[in-house]
Amino acid sequence: MAAIWAVGEVAEGRPTRLTLELATLARQLADASGSTAAVVLVGHDVTTAAAEVATYGPVVLAVATPDDDRPAAARTAALLADLLEERSPDVVLIGASSDGKDIAGALVGLTDLPILVNASSVSWADGGPRVEMSTFGGRLVTQSAFVGTRGIVLVRPASVTAEAAATSGAVETVEVDAGARLGAVRVTGHTEQAGSAVPIEEARIIVGGGRGVGSPEGFAIIEDLADALGGAVGATRAVVDAGWIGYGQQIGQTGKIVKPALYVACGISGAIQHKVGVQTAGTIVAINRDPDAPIAEFADLLVVGDLFEVVPRLAAAVRARKAASG
Protein backbone atom coordinates (compact mmCIF):
# COMPACT_ATOMS: atom_id res chain seq x y z
CA MET A 1 0.00 0.00 0.00
CA ALA A 2 1.25 3.44 -0.90
CA ALA A 3 2.05 5.94 1.82
CA ILE A 4 1.51 9.69 1.70
CA TRP A 5 3.59 11.71 4.14
CA ALA A 6 3.57 15.34 5.08
CA VAL A 7 6.27 17.22 6.95
CA GLY A 8 4.78 19.52 9.56
CA GLU A 9 6.14 22.59 11.32
CA VAL A 10 5.65 23.59 14.91
CA ALA A 11 5.84 27.19 16.09
CA GLU A 12 5.65 27.91 19.81
CA GLY A 13 4.31 24.46 20.51
CA ARG A 14 1.47 24.63 17.97
CA PRO A 15 1.28 23.28 14.42
CA THR A 16 1.29 26.07 11.83
CA ARG A 17 -1.83 26.57 9.71
CA LEU A 18 0.11 25.25 6.73
CA THR A 19 0.81 22.06 8.68
CA LEU A 20 -2.91 21.51 9.28
CA GLU A 21 -3.53 22.10 5.58
CA LEU A 22 -0.88 19.50 4.68
CA ALA A 23 -2.37 17.03 7.17
CA THR A 24 -5.75 17.51 5.46
CA LEU A 25 -4.22 17.15 1.99
CA ALA A 26 -2.31 13.99 2.99
CA ARG A 27 -5.57 12.48 4.26
CA GLN A 28 -7.47 13.45 1.10
CA LEU A 29 -4.78 11.98 -1.18
CA ALA A 30 -4.64 8.82 0.92
CA ASP A 31 -8.44 8.48 0.64
CA ALA A 32 -8.34 9.04 -3.12
CA SER A 33 -5.57 6.48 -3.66
CA GLY A 34 -6.27 3.89 -0.98
CA SER A 35 -3.01 4.75 0.79
CA THR A 36 -2.06 5.58 4.34
CA ALA A 37 -1.37 9.12 5.53
CA ALA A 38 1.21 10.28 8.07
CA VAL A 39 2.53 13.63 9.25
CA VAL A 40 6.09 13.87 10.55
CA LEU A 41 6.71 16.46 13.26
CA VAL A 42 10.29 17.16 14.27
CA GLY A 43 11.19 19.25 17.27
CA HIS A 44 12.27 19.47 20.86
CA ASP A 45 8.77 19.05 22.27
CA VAL A 46 6.06 18.25 19.79
CA THR A 47 3.67 16.35 22.07
CA THR A 48 0.89 18.96 22.13
CA ALA A 49 1.25 19.74 18.45
CA ALA A 50 1.16 16.02 17.59
CA ALA A 51 -2.16 15.56 19.39
CA GLU A 52 -3.66 18.49 17.49
CA VAL A 53 -2.40 17.33 14.09
CA ALA A 54 -3.76 13.82 14.75
CA THR A 55 -7.31 15.22 14.84
CA TYR A 56 -6.91 15.92 11.11
CA GLY A 57 -6.73 12.20 10.45
CA PRO A 58 -3.21 11.07 9.59
CA VAL A 59 -0.94 9.09 11.86
CA VAL A 60 1.56 11.45 13.46
CA LEU A 61 5.21 10.46 13.63
CA ALA A 62 6.66 12.56 16.45
CA VAL A 63 10.42 12.82 16.27
CA ALA A 64 11.99 14.35 19.37
CA THR A 65 15.27 16.18 18.93
CA PRO A 66 17.68 17.59 21.48
CA ASP A 67 17.07 21.24 22.32
CA ASP A 68 19.68 22.63 19.96
CA ASP A 69 18.71 25.33 17.56
CA ARG A 70 20.46 24.29 14.44
CA PRO A 71 18.76 25.52 11.28
CA ALA A 72 15.93 23.36 9.96
CA ALA A 73 17.72 22.31 6.79
CA ALA A 74 20.71 20.92 8.65
CA ARG A 75 18.79 19.24 11.47
CA THR A 76 15.41 18.21 10.07
CA ALA A 77 16.50 17.29 6.54
CA ALA A 78 19.24 14.95 7.77
CA LEU A 79 16.77 13.28 10.10
CA LEU A 80 14.08 12.99 7.47
CA ALA A 81 16.53 11.58 4.95
CA ASP A 82 17.20 8.68 7.34
CA LEU A 83 13.50 8.17 8.00
CA LEU A 84 12.68 8.24 4.28
CA GLU A 85 15.34 5.64 3.55
CA GLU A 86 14.03 3.41 6.32
CA ARG A 87 10.30 3.61 5.51
CA SER A 88 10.23 4.79 1.90
CA PRO A 89 6.93 6.66 1.67
CA ASP A 90 5.79 7.35 -1.89
CA VAL A 91 4.82 11.00 -1.65
CA VAL A 92 6.26 13.57 0.74
CA LEU A 93 4.33 16.83 1.02
CA ILE A 94 6.30 19.78 2.38
CA GLY A 95 4.95 23.29 2.97
CA ALA A 96 6.46 26.13 0.94
CA SER A 97 7.57 28.16 3.97
CA SER A 98 11.18 29.32 4.38
CA ASP A 99 12.10 26.31 6.50
CA GLY A 100 10.01 24.01 4.31
CA LYS A 101 11.90 25.07 1.18
CA ASP A 102 15.26 24.65 2.90
CA ILE A 103 14.28 21.16 4.10
CA ALA A 104 12.82 20.10 0.75
CA GLY A 105 15.89 21.28 -1.15
CA ALA A 106 18.30 19.60 1.23
CA LEU A 107 16.26 16.37 0.97
CA VAL A 108 16.54 16.44 -2.83
CA GLY A 109 20.30 16.68 -2.43
CA LEU A 110 20.49 13.95 0.20
CA THR A 111 18.02 11.41 -1.18
CA ASP A 112 17.93 12.11 -4.91
CA LEU A 113 14.12 12.10 -4.84
CA PRO A 114 12.41 14.11 -7.59
CA ILE A 115 10.59 17.27 -6.60
CA LEU A 116 7.66 19.33 -7.87
CA VAL A 117 7.51 22.84 -6.43
CA ASN A 118 5.07 25.70 -6.11
CA ALA A 119 1.97 23.45 -5.98
CA SER A 120 -1.30 25.35 -5.70
CA SER A 121 -3.37 22.18 -5.92
CA VAL A 122 -2.58 18.47 -5.66
CA SER A 123 -4.89 15.68 -6.79
CA TRP A 124 -4.48 11.96 -7.42
CA ALA A 125 -4.42 10.75 -11.04
CA ASP A 126 -2.86 7.83 -12.94
CA GLY A 127 -1.36 6.30 -9.82
CA GLY A 128 0.38 9.38 -8.50
CA PRO A 129 0.03 12.98 -7.45
CA ARG A 130 -0.91 15.48 -10.13
CA VAL A 131 0.38 18.89 -9.25
CA GLU A 132 -0.98 22.21 -10.45
CA MET A 133 1.17 25.29 -10.29
CA SER A 134 0.33 28.85 -11.06
CA THR A 135 3.09 30.79 -12.79
CA PHE A 136 3.73 34.08 -14.49
CA GLY A 137 1.50 36.10 -12.27
CA GLY A 138 -1.39 33.69 -12.58
CA ARG A 139 -1.47 33.92 -16.35
CA LEU A 140 -0.61 30.27 -16.68
CA VAL A 141 -1.46 27.11 -14.77
CA THR A 142 0.62 24.01 -15.53
CA GLN A 143 0.06 20.41 -14.52
CA SER A 144 2.92 18.04 -13.81
CA ALA A 145 3.56 14.63 -12.32
CA PHE A 146 6.49 12.42 -11.38
CA VAL A 147 7.98 10.11 -13.98
CA GLY A 148 8.39 7.39 -11.37
CA THR A 149 6.15 6.69 -8.41
CA ARG A 150 7.97 8.58 -5.66
CA GLY A 151 8.70 12.22 -5.01
CA ILE A 152 8.50 15.37 -2.93
CA VAL A 153 5.81 18.03 -3.50
CA LEU A 154 6.36 21.54 -2.18
CA VAL A 155 2.88 22.89 -1.41
CA ARG A 156 1.88 26.57 -1.19
CA PRO A 157 -0.14 27.88 1.71
CA ALA A 158 -3.94 27.89 1.20
CA SER A 159 -3.90 25.12 -1.42
CA VAL A 160 -6.52 23.29 0.64
CA THR A 161 -8.78 24.22 3.53
CA ALA A 162 -7.78 22.52 6.76
CA GLU A 163 -10.59 20.26 8.00
CA ALA A 164 -10.53 18.01 11.03
CA ALA A 165 -11.31 14.34 10.35
CA ALA A 166 -14.11 12.16 11.71
CA THR A 167 -11.52 9.89 13.32
CA SER A 168 -8.19 10.96 14.71
CA GLY A 169 -4.92 9.30 13.77
CA ALA A 170 -2.55 7.67 16.24
CA VAL A 171 0.61 9.36 17.50
CA GLU A 172 3.78 7.31 17.20
CA THR A 173 7.01 8.42 18.84
CA VAL A 174 9.97 7.82 16.58
CA GLU A 175 13.64 7.69 17.50
CA VAL A 176 16.02 8.68 14.75
CA ASP A 177 19.68 9.19 15.26
CA ALA A 178 20.64 11.27 12.30
CA GLY A 179 24.25 11.84 11.49
CA ALA A 180 25.36 15.26 10.34
CA ARG A 181 25.09 15.32 6.56
CA LEU A 182 25.36 19.01 5.84
CA GLY A 183 28.25 21.15 7.00
CA ALA A 184 27.86 22.60 10.48
CA VAL A 185 26.01 25.89 10.94
CA ARG A 186 26.03 27.51 14.37
CA VAL A 187 23.29 29.84 15.56
CA THR A 188 25.03 32.46 17.67
CA GLY A 189 22.33 35.01 18.32
CA HIS A 190 18.72 36.09 17.95
CA THR A 191 17.35 39.57 17.42
CA GLU A 192 13.71 40.40 17.91
CA GLN A 193 12.21 43.02 15.66
CA ALA A 194 8.78 44.51 15.85
CA GLY A 195 6.64 43.02 13.12
CA SER A 196 3.08 42.21 12.35
CA ALA A 197 1.40 39.84 14.77
CA VAL A 198 -0.17 37.75 11.99
CA PRO A 199 2.20 36.31 9.36
CA ILE A 200 0.78 37.32 5.98
CA GLU A 201 1.03 33.78 4.58
CA GLU A 202 -1.42 32.62 7.22
CA ALA A 203 -3.89 35.49 6.93
CA ARG A 204 -7.35 35.08 5.38
CA ILE A 205 -7.59 38.81 4.83
CA ILE A 206 -4.71 41.13 3.92
CA VAL A 207 -4.79 44.91 3.66
CA GLY A 208 -1.87 46.07 1.52
CA GLY A 209 -0.31 49.52 1.54
CA GLY A 210 1.83 51.02 -1.23
CA ARG A 211 3.61 54.25 -1.95
CA GLY A 212 0.25 56.04 -1.98
CA VAL A 213 0.18 55.62 1.82
CA GLY A 214 2.72 58.43 1.80
CA SER A 215 4.76 57.82 4.97
CA PRO A 216 5.42 55.28 7.73
CA GLU A 217 2.80 57.09 9.82
CA GLY A 218 0.31 56.64 6.99
CA PHE A 219 0.37 52.90 7.74
CA ALA A 220 -1.63 53.56 10.91
CA ILE A 221 -4.88 53.71 8.92
CA ILE A 222 -3.89 50.59 6.97
CA GLU A 223 -3.26 48.75 10.25
CA ASP A 224 -6.56 50.00 11.62
CA LEU A 225 -8.45 48.71 8.57
CA ALA A 226 -6.66 45.36 8.88
CA ASP A 227 -7.69 45.26 12.52
CA ALA A 228 -11.32 46.05 11.67
CA LEU A 229 -11.37 43.27 9.06
CA GLY A 230 -9.44 40.84 11.25
CA GLY A 231 -6.56 40.63 8.79
CA ALA A 232 -2.84 41.25 8.38
CA VAL A 233 -0.91 44.11 6.79
CA GLY A 234 0.92 43.61 3.50
CA ALA A 235 3.05 45.98 1.45
CA THR A 236 4.79 46.64 -1.83
CA ARG A 237 8.51 46.64 -2.33
CA ALA A 238 8.49 50.40 -2.81
CA VAL A 239 7.47 50.97 0.80
CA VAL A 240 9.69 48.18 2.15
CA ASP A 241 12.68 49.73 0.36
CA ALA A 242 11.69 53.09 1.83
CA GLY A 243 11.84 51.49 5.28
CA TRP A 244 8.19 52.23 6.11
CA ILE A 245 7.47 48.59 6.96
CA GLY A 246 9.40 45.32 7.35
CA TYR A 247 10.38 42.99 4.54
CA GLY A 248 8.31 40.24 6.14
CA GLN A 249 5.19 42.06 4.94
CA GLN A 250 6.30 42.39 1.31
CA ILE A 251 4.08 40.73 -1.26
CA GLY A 252 5.39 39.88 -4.71
CA GLN A 253 8.11 38.37 -6.82
CA THR A 254 10.87 38.96 -4.29
CA GLY A 255 8.56 39.00 -1.29
CA LYS A 256 5.87 36.51 -0.33
CA ILE A 257 3.30 34.84 -2.49
CA VAL A 258 -0.01 34.89 -0.70
CA LYS A 259 -3.50 33.63 -1.33
CA PRO A 260 -5.91 35.38 1.02
CA ALA A 261 -9.66 35.22 0.58
CA LEU A 262 -9.63 39.04 0.43
CA TYR A 263 -6.90 41.49 -0.55
CA VAL A 264 -7.51 45.22 -0.12
CA ALA A 265 -4.84 47.16 -2.04
CA CYS A 266 -4.49 50.77 -0.88
CA GLY A 267 -2.33 53.17 -2.88
CA ILE A 268 -0.76 50.32 -4.84
CA SER A 269 -0.26 50.65 -8.59
CA GLY A 270 -0.26 46.89 -9.25
CA ALA A 271 3.13 46.41 -10.94
CA ILE A 272 3.67 42.94 -12.41
CA GLN A 273 6.19 42.06 -9.67
CA HIS A 274 3.55 42.84 -7.05
CA LYS A 275 0.74 41.16 -8.97
CA VAL A 276 2.54 37.80 -9.08
CA GLY A 277 2.39 37.68 -5.30
CA VAL A 278 -1.34 38.13 -4.92
CA GLN A 279 -2.95 37.22 -8.23
CA THR A 280 -4.67 34.14 -6.82
CA ALA A 281 -6.43 35.98 -3.98
CA GLY A 282 -10.14 35.18 -3.83
CA THR A 283 -11.30 38.79 -4.07
CA ILE A 284 -9.24 41.92 -4.74
CA VAL A 285 -10.50 45.39 -3.81
CA ALA A 286 -8.34 48.37 -4.80
CA ILE A 287 -8.46 51.93 -3.55
CA ASN A 288 -6.50 54.19 -5.87
CA ARG A 289 -6.64 57.79 -7.02
CA ASP A 290 -5.75 56.76 -10.55
CA PRO A 291 -8.53 54.92 -12.45
CA ASP A 292 -5.94 53.74 -14.99
CA ALA A 293 -3.50 52.17 -12.51
CA PRO A 294 -2.54 48.64 -13.66
CA ILE A 295 -4.32 47.20 -10.61
CA ALA A 296 -7.62 48.04 -12.35
CA GLU A 297 -6.84 45.10 -14.65
CA PHE A 298 -6.88 42.49 -11.89
CA ALA A 299 -9.02 43.95 -9.11
CA ASP A 300 -12.65 42.89 -8.70
CA LEU A 301 -13.69 46.23 -7.26
CA LEU A 302 -11.85 49.49 -7.86
CA VAL A 303 -12.70 52.51 -5.78
CA VAL A 304 -11.34 55.65 -7.38
CA GLY A 305 -10.51 58.01 -4.58
CA ASP A 306 -8.08 59.28 -1.99
CA LEU A 307 -7.18 56.49 0.40
CA PHE A 308 -6.83 58.93 3.29
CA GLU A 309 -10.52 59.73 2.88
CA VAL A 310 -11.79 56.25 2.04
CA VAL A 311 -9.77 53.93 4.33
CA PRO A 312 -10.75 55.39 7.74
CA ARG A 313 -14.41 55.51 6.68
CA LEU A 314 -14.19 51.95 5.45
CA ALA A 315 -12.75 50.77 8.78
CA ALA A 316 -15.60 52.50 10.61
CA ALA A 317 -18.21 51.05 8.22
CA VAL A 318 -16.78 47.54 8.62
CA ARG A 319 -16.92 47.82 12.41
CA ALA A 320 -20.48 49.16 12.24
CA ARG A 321 -21.58 46.29 9.97
CA LYS A 322 -19.92 43.71 12.19
CA ALA A 323 -21.51 45.20 15.31
CA ALA A 324 -24.94 45.19 13.65
CA SER A 325 -24.68 41.58 12.47
CA GLY A 326 -22.67 40.22 15.38
Binding site: A11, D69, P71, V185, R186, V187, T188, G189, H190, T191, E192, Q193, G195, P199, G248
Partner: peptide, 8 residues
Protein backbone atom coordinates in the same frame (compact mmCIF):
# COMPACT_ATOMS: atom_id res chain seq x y z
CA UNK B 1 9.27 35.39 11.73
CA UNK B 2 10.19 37.48 14.78
CA UNK B 3 13.41 39.20 13.70
CA UNK B 4 16.61 37.49 12.67
CA UNK B 5 19.05 34.79 13.81
CA UNK B 6 22.79 35.17 13.50
CA UNK B 7 24.27 32.07 11.87
CA UNK B 8 27.91 31.17 11.25
Amino acid sequence: PTGFDVQE
